[in-house]
């Protein structure tokens, strides 16, 4: 028999201390790197203020990072802007980045999402770094007080997120409309069409499977018997919610890829593959 130190209970372990034998640090590290990469790329694209729409071969593709496009980027008419050019009243001293008008919506939805909260509390705050692993801080206030009590605002990001899904679905439809040489529009499908439609589907799966939607659609009630439509909706949302993490990551990666694809096409580096 041998002895190896001692401790008291309940004990508090130091940062990263654990008896776990598995590679517990892999998951938070991957989350940290993936979310950081996305934030850096999205910020870069919003600040880049260009390459967000593509008209090659008659296509009408719009990047989801800029959709809905409220105002065109100065000097870059796209045909997608809801209100046309940059408003004349816009102060000259404030830089004009149309992406920032809308990125607060999906950004806020994801920042306050229950899945992402659990993921980034671990990856960015180490609170805890992973299950049964020691933390760097002794104090803890959780989501009971400011600032994290603000996470309860989640549903107020969810409502506009639903509208964003409708807009992105419309973008998918528009991506099936190609302009011919004579100026008329006709149905067509390019690789970009599929990418943009897939983006709307994945974001829809993420948004409509969120815990907030599940609560609002029926989870808030204790009895759904006798309400077959509401029951069906609740079951449907619950089915999406079971894979919420998968929807969250696949939609995040795909929305970034969609923007990247359109950027590469718009910059001339790639040519959209027209399927028919």
């Amino acid at each position: 028999m041998t002895t190896n130190g001692d401790f008291r209970l309940p004990q508090t372990r130091g940062f990263g201390e654990t008896a776990r034998r598995d590679r517990w640090w892999v998951q938070p590290t991957v989350v940290f790197l993936a979310l950081s990469a996305f934030i850096v790329y999205a910020t870069f694209r919003a600040l880049e203020n260009g390459y967000h729409h593509y008209e090659g071969g008659g296509a009408q593709y719009l990047s989801p990072f800029y959709s809905p496009l409220l105002f065109d980027v100065p000097g870059d008419p796209s045909g997608h802007a809801w209100f046309g050019d940059k408003p004349s009243w816009w102060p000259a001293l404030i830089p004009f980045f149309p992406a920032f008008f809308i990125l607060w919506g999906p950004g806020g939805m994801r920042f306050t999402c229950y899945y992402y909260r659990g993921a980034y509390y671990k990856a960015f705050w180490a609170d805890p770094p992973n299950c049964a692993v020691g933390e760097p801080r002794k104090g803890y206030r959780g989501e009971r007080s400011f600032p994290l009590i603000m996470q309860n605002i989640h549903r107020y990001f969810f409502y506009p997120a639903c509208a964003f899904i409708a807009v992105l679905a419309w973008d998918g439809f528009v991506a099936t409309r190609f302009t011919g040489a004579d100026g008329s529009t006709h149905f067509g499908v390019g690789l970009g069409t599929i990418i943009i439609c897939m983006n709307a589907i994945l974001l829809g799966g993420y948004t409509f499977g969120c815990h907030c939607m599940r609560h609002l659609i029926g989870g808030r009630l204790n009895a759904l018997a006798g309400k077959p439509i509401q029951r069906a909706c609740y079951d449907c949302v619950s089915a999406l919610n079971k894979r919420h993490m998968l929807w969250a990551w696949s939609s995040l990666v795909w929305v970034g890829f969609t923007d990247f694809y359109i950027r590469m096409c718009a910059s001339g580096a790639w040519t959209d593959w027209r399927i028919f």
Binding site: R117, S145, H211, R214
Partner: peptide, 29 residues
Amino acid sequence: GYCNITKCCTKVCPEHITITDNAIIPLKE
């Protein structure tokens, strides 16, 4: 409000109760 949704409770439950998604988050909502 102290629960910050780490889902560790769900991971260790030997009865595979979906503690976080089916109990805690609906109560939070």
